[in-house]
Nucleic acid binder design. Structure first.
Lengths: 136, 136
DNA sequence: AGGGACATTATGTTATAACATAACTTGTGA
DNA sequence: TCACAAGTTATGTTATAACATAATGTCCCT
């Protein structure tokens, strides 16, 4: 159930700044971390950041990680926001790997159907350790 | 009124109060909602609630719903906290259905292995509508 | 045994950190 | 002038740090 996604409108200045901050970051950032980074480029208050994030998330360019209240730039091409994605979040370094897996979405549908539940959005976040942190 | 647990020591007074509040609730409650409910029984401040919740969650008697910052009493028997559970959260009435599905956990393991990621805990929350809300 | 010293655990309390949005104002371009 | 993006102020909501006190257990000494 891929619902597409990328709106055609250009990004506003704030949206571009926020997206850039997330793209430059090594891992996920909280809204307030983004705000701090962008203060010297004119960002002054939380609503500005949250509004930009709303748009970027709606367009699927950024994902919100519910379990850590943070945001990460989308790592995969053609990532509609409604698709089932798996986020593997390293508990040590907090880096995130984004995984697309249709099978999981199908399984959710099946399981939900048993419970007479209709799924609109799936949140899947795996906490653990990435290869790099396990090695060190 | 001590409610016995899977494996652990009896609950303290605060833990019992919090568990009782969640068990009586129709759906998930936030920590502050619990606090409000229990003020007249001696609960005064957030840390008391959060500490009780920490213990109940650690013992698997209560689950935290990351995507709505709320807590719900465990609905299934023998629910070890480390097992992969799926929570179906109705966007209309906020009621939660807890689903155990080993297949999903296996799939996560397989998928994570591809990414050289070792999973310690899975968070799966489905947002959608329950049968009752769809019917009405 | 009984009592004191100490450790441990639970609780209470204050304050504040961290995350998010409501509500209103101002600017700007079609 | 209308609509909408952006700015601004204030506030709401969620969570924890830091410190103080109470309750309980346990060990040792006499």
């Amino acid at each position: 159930m891929i619902v597409s996604t990328q709106r055609d409108t250009a990004l506003t200045r704030n949206q571009s700044l926020v997206l850039e901050a997330l793209a430059d970051a090594k891992g996920p950032l909280t809204a307030y971390a983004i705000l701090d980074q962008l203060r010297d480029r004119g960002m002054r208050a939380p609503p500005q950041v949250y509004r930009a994030l709303d748009k970027l998330v709606a367009d699927g360019m950024v994902h919100r990680l519910e379990s850590i209240n943070a945001f990460v730039v989308c790592q995969l091409p053609d990532c509609g926001s409604r698709e089932t994605m798996i986020f593997a979040i390293c508990s040590d370094c907090s880096q995130v790997t984004e995984i697309r897996d249709g099978g999981v979405g199908d399984r959710f549908q099946a399981v939900a159907e048993q419970a007479a539940f209709s799924v609109h959005k799936s949140i899947v976040e795996l906490r653990g350790r990435c290869a790099h942190c396990r090695a060190s």
